[in-house]
């Protein structure tokens, strides 16, 4: 058995040993993957699969779904389906940028805090715990409001509020394994702290990181949609699910459901895709740990 897994190995074993394996609960993973991959594909193929320019008036406003406009048109006369397709780009961009940012700050800080302990750990933990206890959406609202509406700014706001999630998880796991035999063996061989952290501790956290990653992406998707619903993410006429939902809200109770229904459905599907993957993985990881 290898003691240290490389991330590549984790991914490979995960794909081979799980996605294709016949184990209970694998359907969750497959459905989740299916949803996420289709939406990513949708974003990539947006120019090909969208029939209209998402930012232009292309027909009469308020048209219900039809063959010509499968999801109807909105109050300006834009094609809702085309906006949904292009909108996937914004939310994916924001969420992945945000996740990359919070991981690249939260994970090293968590490693350092858990590994060295002492005063630096106490200070960092206290700051992170305070942030963690605070409503993420409200903090993100404040930051986004100051930065002004743009997808990159939204990503920064979201990144900020998910740093503690990664920090806490990495710190806890580092504490748990830093005294294990193979880490001590690495010390005994004279490996410097940086090497121990990067080569011996971090790779062993990859399963946990994968779980936290999927679950926090699911969460960030809802946060992004929330921020843009409140008008804090994009400016008109950029297509964006959360914003489009808000724009369609005033017409809902006149019976025009399509402007609200489709964007919101997409938000939920995307979040659900990641949540399903995360749920299936966490079950798998906790099973592996109890064995």
């Amino acid at each position: 058995m290898r003691i240290v897994d490389r991330p590549v190995d984790v991914l490979r074993s995960f794909l081979r040993g799980y996605l294709l394996a016949r184990v209970p609960g694998v359907w969750m993973l497959r459905v989740g993957f299916g949803i996420v991959l289709s939406i990513i594909l949708m974003a990539i193929l947006a120019p090909i699969i969208s029939p209209y320019d998402p930012a232009r008036r292309v027909d009469e406003p308020y048209l219900p779904p039809s063959w010509k406009h499968p999801m109807g048109t909105n109050r300006i006369g834009q094609d809702v389906y085309s906006r949904i397709v292009w909108g996937s780009r914004i939310i994916l961009y924001v969420v992945f940028l945000a996740t990359a940012l919070s991981m690249s700050i939260g994970i090293p800080l968590g490693l350092i805090s858990g590994y060295y302990g002492g005063r630096i750990d106490r200070v960092l933990s206290m700051v992170m715990d305070s942030m963690y206890a605070f409503p993420a959406l409200i903090l993100a609202i404040a930051i986004a409001a100051v930065l002004g509406p743009s997808p990159s700014n939204t990503a920064i706001a979201i990144a900020f509020v998910y740093i503690p999630t990664y920090f806490r998880m990495i710190r806890g796991q580092t504490l748990a394994i830093k005294n294990s035999l193979y880490v001590e063996a690495a010390h005994a061989l004279g490996a410097p702290d940086k090497t121990v952290m990067a080569k011996y501790i971090l790779p062993n956290l990859s399963h946990t990181i994968l779980v936290v990653f999927t679950l926090s992406v699911a969460d960030s998707i809802l946060t992004e949609a929330g921020l843009s619903y409140l008008g804090l993410s994009v400016t008109v006429p950029t297509p964006d699910w959360g914003y489009d939902l808000r724009a369609g809200q005033p017409f809902l109770l006149d019976g025009m459901w399509w402007m609200v229904f489709f964007p919101g459905l997409m938000v939920m599907l995307l979040a659900m895709g990641f949540a399903l993957i995360g749920e299936a993985l966490s079950e798998r990881v906790s099973l592996a740990q109890t064995r």
């Binding site: 949609a225 959360g242 019976g255 609200v260 939920m268 979040a271 949540a275």
Partner: peptide
């Protein structure tokens, strides 16, 4: 119930709220 938990967790609040408005209000 596990599915319920995931779906409930990933419901987008404005969307779900508006669906309820549409159904119970309209």
């Amino acid at each position: 119930m596990r599915l319920y938990s995931i779906i409930a967790y990933t419901l987008f609040i404005p969307w779900f709220g508006l669906l309820l408005q549409y159904f119970f209000g309209l």
